[in-house]
Structure formats: C-alpha cells, structure tokens
Amino acid sequence: MIEVKNVSYTYAVGTPFEKNALREISFSVSEGDFLAIAGHTGSGKSTLIQIIAGLIDLQSGAVEVDGESIGVQTARRKIGIVFQYPEHQLFEETVAKDIAFGPRNFGLSETEISKRVEEAMKFVGLDFALKDVSPFELSGGQKRRVAIAGILALKPKYLILDEPTAGLDPKARRNLLAEIKKLHRAGVTIVFVSHSMEDIANLARRAVVLAQGRILFDGEPRKLFAQEKILDAAGLLPPPVTQLILELNRAGLSVDAGAMTLDEAEREILRRLN
C-alpha cells in the first residue's frame, strides 16, 4: 500500500512567485488498485506523482510504501514512473540498450538484464527483432512502448503513468490502454494521470480529482461524472458518451445518465426504445 499523509508542497518559497501546489493531501493506494488522478493543468497532479515516486523531496507530511518511508531506496524501487511523452527521454543507440538502462543501474546481472529486456518488449507488444534497431527510427507509438518497457523492466510493484495516451492516434491509444489493463491483471497496481475522461471511464476503478492542490473528489468514476459542479471546478468534462447521453436527456429522452461507455449507452437507449 502507498500512503500519502498530509503532504503539502510550495514552490518558490519566500519569493513573489510562491505557489502552493499541494495542500494537506492525504489518500492511499491499495495493492491491486486501478486509480486515475484527474485535474486541470496546474492542479498539482505532476507534483503529487513525483512526490509519491520519491523524485521530489518532501517539505511536510509523509509518503510510505508498504510501511516504509519513500526516502528509503527499497521503497523507491517498488515504484515505477512513466512521464508524459516518455519517448522524449530515449537516448541509447538501440532499443535493447535503452530498455536495459534502468535494470543496469539497479546492478542486475547481464543474464537477468537480457531476460528482463526480452520480457518487457514482449509485454508491450514490441517485436523482439527490433532490439538492435535505433529507437529513433520507430513510430511514435512504438517509441512510447520502448520507453514504457524500460520502466517495466524494473518490475515495479506500483506503476505511475502521467498522461500515457497523450498525442497518440486512436489505434495506438487503444492498444496502449489494453496493455495497461493487462499489466493490472498481472498484478501491478496502476496509478495514471489523465485528461481523458473516456480513458478514466473505461479503465479506472477509482478516480481522485485535484483542484488548487486539494482533493476535490475520491471515488468511483461513474459517481464523478454525475457531479457537474465538481467537474466544472476541476476544469473537466464528462466523457463523450456521457455528454451525448446528457444531450439526449436535454432533448427530452429520459435515458439513464450513468452510462459512461458505448456499450452501456447502447443498452440503455435500446431499453428506452423498446
């Protein structure tokens, strides 16, 4: 379990640009959770996930991973973080070397490293034959997979992804989401930051909404989308399907506004028509 206890964070303390990015945030992520963090740009999401991953020093409060402080290396190594546009950080000559970078830093043996590279590539659906290719010759979707494979090769127990589908075309997006689901089924606890309410509706079991550095909502996505005030305050909109259902309701069709996915909307409208 990851426990975030009373975490506050202020940027540029003592200058005219002082900004409270996080204010007394407390929540926990249980093993097996599939949690989405949403909020508009500047709501504190990125600061929060970097604090959870132990990449920003705490100013106040505490973060514990399985009971151990995030300041301890064994705690930090349980958490993997995939940044926004992670493909921008690719730098090695070959795909395999890039994926091996993290495991090598962990001091693993060469046999173990090769094994992990192969497994990680397989997991994200990259043909193993691409291992000796330069990552810069790959397509956008493939590059992102290489970057994610580099984190998976570290075998994190908890995986944090910041806007994993931003900038991907619809097909690459669907494929990547399917892989994240597969990871979750394989036992990895997932925390993902997203602007896409569609992705949150289709994937997450739980959503945490941040606004002005505070938690505005923590619960099931379905309940979130029914609360227009919270969505408004957080700069969010319901997923396209829910917006469509709301439009049908405005037109006088009484359809259950809880539908978030196309399957649910289809069933609900057929029920209404019959």
Binding site: E247, A251, L253, I269
Partner: peptide, 24 residues
C-alpha cells in the same frame, strides 16, 4: 451500433443533437 440492432436511423448522423432529434 443502434442501426445494427435494427433501429432505423439516417446514414449521416454526426452530432449528439442530431441523434437526439431522431431518437426523440
């Protein structure tokens, strides 16, 4: 999807408003 389930709809619906008007 609704068409495949036998609901007769115009072939070129593009927006939520249009779909709402027809279903209504």
């Amino acid at each position: 999807r609704l068409r495949r389930r036998g609901v007769r709809l115009p072939a070129d619906i593009l927006t939520a408003q249009e779909l709402a008007a027809v279903l209504k």
